[in-house]
Amino acid sequence: NITNLCPFDEVFNATRFASVYAWNRKRISNCVADYSVLYNLAPFFTFKCYGVSPTKLNDLCFTNVYADSFVIRGDEVRQIAPGQTGNIADYNYKLPDDFTGCVIAWNSNKLDSKVSGNYNYLYRLFRKSNLKPFERDISTEIYQAGNKPCNGVAGFNCYFPLRSYSFRPTYGVGHQPYRVVVLSFELLHAPATVCGPKKST
Rank of each mutant, 00 (worst) to 15 (best):
C158T: 01
F126P: 03
N40E: 11
T15E: 13
T3S: 13
S113P: 01
C49Q: 02
Q79G: 03
C150R: 01
Y171V: 02
V181W: 05
N130D: 10
P96S: 08
Y119T: 09
D9T: 12
T63Q: 11
V194D: 11
N24L: 06
F17T: 03
F12T: 06
A190Y: 12
Y91W: 07
Y123E: 04
K198G: 15
N24T: 15
S29K: 11
T140Y: 10
Y21F: 12
D75C: 06
R73V: 00
D98C: 07
Y165I: 00
L131S: 02
S36E: 11
N118G: 06
S108A: 10
F44A: 15
P191M: 10
D90C: 09
F160V: 14
Y171L: 00
I104G: 07
L183K: 00
G146Y: 02
A105M: 06
L38R: 05
L57D: 10
N157G: 03
L41N: 14
C61H: 08
F99M: 05
D68K: 04
C195F: 08
Y159I: 00
G172T: 00
N118W: 04
Y93P: 00
P177Q: 01
G152V: 05
C49K: 02
D34W: 06
G146S: 06
F47E: 06
N147G: 07
N147S: 08
K148L: 14
F99G: 00
Y39E: 12
V11I: 15
R78C: 07
V115S: 10
K114F: 07
A145R: 06
F99D: 00
R136Y: 05
L122R: 13
C195Q: 08
T3I: 09
E135Y: 05
P96T: 06
F134D: 06
N107C: 05
F185I: 09
L122V: 11
Y121H: 07
D90F: 09
N4T: 14
S53N: 15
C61M: 07
Y66M: 11
K198H: 14
Y21P: 04
H189F: 09
I80M: 05
N120A: 13
K128I: 08
V71F: 01
T201L: 14
V32L: 10
I138Y: 07
D137Y: 04
E186S: 12
K199Q: 13
